[in-house]
Design a protein around this nucleic acid. Structure first.
Lengths: 182, 182
DNA sequence: TATTTTATCGAACAAATGTACATTAACTAT
DNA sequence: ATAGTTAATGTACATTTGTTCGATAAAATA
């Protein structure tokens, strides 16, 4: 299977587009392979040639989102000459803006109906970003990274459950307050 | 459907036992309704009379675990609205001991293959424990609760990924160190 | 004990899954 | 432009799902 083959590109692009449209109408777990293929006008065997389940298509969207997440985090560092930081400065955190940008996707990622796999993909991404900031093999800090990463996701979960009504800037303020006060 | 009917009790007990045995052989998502019913010697229609999917049976196990969690969650969380550093005593934090007690279940709950629903059930339980003694409608603290709850789950995730090799007491030390040092 | 209630069974059904294979059409490389 | 490659198709099949329904056996109740 050559991913540069025009037929493959065309098929995948077709599937991506169809899934995007379907996601506007119904939640991910309710979208069947049969339905997706019928709407995309491709053979069901073709789908199984590329993927195992509908969730695998969504994972390809996920990759792009995680790239943007990483870029969002590094963004403030590009505009400062003080690259070395002892700690994450909440005021420079862009993660909430990133979530807002991909709000519709995060509504799916954070919904309880989907596989937990997406959650852990998000967790791993945030965690590795924190780790990259400060290289260490110390066990205590390994736990700290998992603690901090998931704490931030905890804020995102709360934000999601409040239907993203607050702005990303307000979320940053929440984070700063929590870190300063407690 | 009368849950006190002996036939119901017998059927559910049968299904519970069969699922427990199956979980020793294969992960939850691979267990089919058909397979479960065949082994339990019950009609598939009977299963659908009580549940919608295999995961619903697992949720009944979950209820018991969450009850034990609530009982295990003693000081220093009970009388504080957040994790207060000064009052932390590793001896009094029982959540890691609780996880260790139900280790085999948490291996399922925290596995990426299952539905995210279990994760949020755990999240909600821990969060409500934090909230219970401090009734407040203050927005800032709502976020703090979600932040703290998920931070602790972050530690449990890291522990799970290290195959629960450390003791519950050692996990307590990690938690205390993180709260004191950072 | 007799009567009523209802959980369970067995069978049937449409729909979706997952896989397999020969054929066809689209693409690549020369 | 041609030949070789392979993605995509169409078809088939066994399995699972989710639901329905009448019959039956087991339980509740009086």
């Amino acid at each position: 299977m050559n991913k540069n083959d025009l037929r493959v590109l065309k098929t995948k692009q077709n599937i991506h587009l169809t899934l995007t449209n379907l996601l506007k109408k119904k939640p991910l777990p309710q979208i069947k392979v049969t339905e997706l293929c019928k709407l995309a006008n491709i053979n069901r065997g073709t789908f199984y040639f590329h993927y195992q389940e509908v969730g695998d298509v969504f994972k390809e969207f996920f990759e792009e989102i995680m790239m943007d997440l990483r870029e969002s985090y590094n963004e403030p560092y590009r505009h400062t000459k003080y690259i070395e930081r002892e700690k994450l400065d909440p005021e420079t955190v862009r993660i909430f803006h990133h979530v807002q940008k991909y709000e519709e996707f995060y509504r799916i990622i954070l919904s309880k109906e989907v596989s937990a796999e997406y959650y852990y993909m998000l967790f791993d991404e945030i965690r590795s970003i924190l780790v990259d900031d400060k290289h260490t093999n110390h066990l205590e800090e390994d736990y700290l990274f998992s603690y901090s990463s998931n704490a931030i996701i905890g804020l995102i979960i709360e934000w999601y459950r409040r239907d993203f009504q607050e702005s990303a800037d307000e979320m940053n303020i929440h984070l700063v307050n929590i870190l300063k006060l407690y």
